[in-house]
Design a protein around this nucleic acid. Structure first.
Lengths: 197, 197
DNA sequence: GTCTATATAATGATAGAC
DNA sequence: GTCTATCATTATATAGAC
């Protein structure tokens, strides 16, 4: 939103690209596809607002990672208690909240970043690793304090992240469950397992 | 392998394409890339062995789904007991075994199938759904027999499949853990959770 | 079966009129 | 800021010599 509350044309283009990148993939999406989505007659008009296709990819990917940081950091700070379990739970709910509410951006973040050329690609991966270390630290704290089982921290962290991120493949905003319900159920499944106790 | 035990040229091409489709993605891989990988001088020589690029994608994707069926069905039949828990565990180990030992094929199966054009795309999805119903049936049996908690069967199944499939993003054949170890640990995490009991 | 050369189509991006 | 036209590049696939 600009200062007067209206979407800029550029913002609309980014949103259209985000949807198309998710639906068809970055390489399968043409500038003409994006122009069509905008109601424009040819791909050329887009270049009055953006510098090129890869700039769209970079914009979406880096804005997505900002969204994850912006949701998860405060969630951890405001968790119900200082216990690693509560902090991890809060982080997981926040992380999945971003995925469910920004499905297109999340798809680009997870699946299309590899089409960035260097050095953007390296910058992206560095920042993503930084983000994932937040979860690894929480898992480590939980294992060290015996709130969690004596698990391999690396494998457990990769498992948690991979499992949470997988919901992008099947969560539907218009489905039976709300984003909060899905996030809560997956969090419960990951923390407690599926076996009866 | 052909009857005399040697790889056919076509099989080599499929293997090269499989690697490249995983590393760069289907659309980012050119026929010249595949020819290079084969030590050929130009993309044209490939067409003596295959009919086109999409045939490679279809061959890899449909062979991959066959591999999943071929591993999981006997694993369930030969499970340690008739309990849903043992059958599901056997199915999970077999499923992740295929992913770890056929990483390239798995990547194509999970990420590149959408570039199939109709009607192949629909045929693929139909068969994949059929495969996933095997897991859904096992989850349902486990919930009905109270071996598992009273969980939403659909969400739990999607969670299990998504979590298992996510290991393709981080498992490395030359890493610290073997395929069997990774599969066993992820199975344990999914069934028992991470919380201390 | 592999080579070189090429036909054909589509792409990202630019130029200039309005 | 959008339009139309187009350039330069690259892609899949084919043709014909060897």
């Amino acid at each position: 939103m600009s200062s007067n509350g209206t979407k800029t044309r550029r913002t609309e283009i980014v949103a259209a690209a985000e949807r198309l990148f998710r639906d068809k993939g970055y390489l399968a999406t043409t500038m003409r596809d994006i122009a069509d989505e905008m109601g424009m007659q040819g791909g050329g008009s887009l270049y009055a607002h953006i510098s090129g296709k890869e700039e769209l990819l970079w914009h979406i990917a880096s804005e997505a990672i900002d969204a994850f940081f912006a949701a998860v950091i405060p969630a951890i700070e405001q968790a119900g208690s200082n216990s690693p379990a509560d902090k991890l739970q809060a982080a997981m709910l926040a992380h999945m909240g971003v995925i469910c509410e920004r499905l297109s951006a999340a798809a680009v973040y997870f699946d299309e970043w590899r089409h960035l050329s260097q050095p953007k690609r390296g910058q992206f991966l560095e920042r993503r690793n930084q983000y994932e270390r937040i979860f690894e630290a929480l898992v480590l704290q939980g294992v060290q304090s015996s709130v969690f089982r004596q698990l391999d921290v690396r494998v457990t962290t990769l498992h948690l992240l991979g499992s949470m991120n997988a919901i992008r493949h099947w969560y539907r905003p218009d489905g039976r469950l709300s984003a909060q319900e899905v996030a809560a159920r997956i969090t419960d499944l990951l923390l407690e397992g599926i076996h009866t106790r």
